[in-house]
Design a protein around this nucleic acid. Sequence first.
DNA 1: GTGGTCTAGACCACC
DNA 2: GTGGTCTAGACCACA
Lengths: 113, 113, 113, 113
Amino acid sequence: MDFNEHKPIYLQISDTICEKIIEGVLPSEERIPSVREYASTLGVNPNTVFRTYEYLESIDAIYNKRGVGFFVSHGAKEKIISLQKLQFMEKEVPAILKKMELLGITPKELFDL
Amino acid sequence: MDFNEHKPIYLQISDTICEKIIEGVLPSEERIPSVREYASTLGVNPNTVFRTYEYLESIDAIYNKRGVGFFVSHGAKEKIISLQKLQFMEKEVPAILKKMELLGITPKELFDL
Amino acid sequence: MDFNEHKPIYLQISDTICEKIIEGVLPSEERIPSVREYASTLGVNPNTVFRTYEYLESIDAIYNKRGVGFFVSHGAKEKIISLQKLQFMEKEVPAILKKMELLGITPKELFDL
Amino acid sequence: MDFNEHKPIYLQISDTICEKIIEGVLPSEERIPSVREYASTLGVNPNTVFRTYEYLESIDAIYNKRGVGFFVSHGAKEKIISLQKLQFMEKEVPAILKKMELLGITPKELFDL
DNA sequence: GTGGTCTAGACCACC
DNA sequence: GTGGTCTAGACCACA
């Protein structure tokens, strides 16, 4: 896992967890690794992982049992999908279309992929 | 011009200049406004505009005639387009496709726009 | 460290860092001082040191671990040497030779030093 | 003639004139082109050429007949050579040697050219 | 007039 | 704590 990109590391970590939830690797009520453990796995600062969990908690994707750990929320998969779908459609798509127009990329050209 | 987003101002300025070059508003060899002039037009600090010009010079989109000003490079339009096209195709497209697959968005769904 | 010459301070700082890398004082993966720390050591403004680091990063001599600091790149020493050697051989040497010829200085005369 | 380098344009112009004097193309008492004429030949601002002449006058390489033009001084060739030789030996040579040592370039390596 | 460099000091996101 | 961006204002060499 590389953290070169401009996106904050804690969000990149969040993305990989979301992927796992969507793919079913992390089902509802599954425990996710502790902050410290995951941090050492990834080779990042524990604070960073904590920020990730904090964020995921804020969107109800995971919840915290005090003294026990973090767990995937009930219905997390659906929540994440609808959330990401929404912002994909409303924010990213327009930006993509504008850029394509500017660069002279036809939808066809893209569609072939 | 207002600078809402998280993107640095100097890059947003760069974007608008690139757009103008692509659209042909700024043809090759055309002089672009002086650092100070453009800064006061945009209501930003001259250093910020200078940073923009420095960046654009580093990608060969503009060049400097000493004591005179900055000018659009020969072939700037093509350079910018190919540069942006490249990174759009190689970086953004894969990310988009992956996200679409993950979220279960069909190309058709997108194509209707 | 005093900055007499006409050369910009940020490049003079860059030169001293490059020297340290070449001499092995700063090996690969070594952390270099933080922007602020180095600035106060040198008695210059943090922005100036930042400019130096920005430049060194642009030539792949150092890289940034976000939130941690700057580190000497893998193979930085070789990169710097080859870069400087190249421009020494291709730009400076011809100029020197031309000047020597013009001034009537024989290679022998120079060789005695 | 390109003016891309870092050296001030007026000094680059001075260099070419000095070369001509040393090579004998411009002998003593020869008239050199007027500021305006030379400026338009080179495609630079007349002020720049004037700065060159001002500089050459300050080192006694040329002199001015009011209302007539600039002329190569008597003994200009010798003056220029001794001046340049001096600063070549005292300023440039040490810098070159230091750089060669740092880059690990042996005098032999250089001597082969 | 032009760019280029620098200082002082601030604010921010991120680790 | 780290870098990164920005403002305000200054000074300089150069064209």
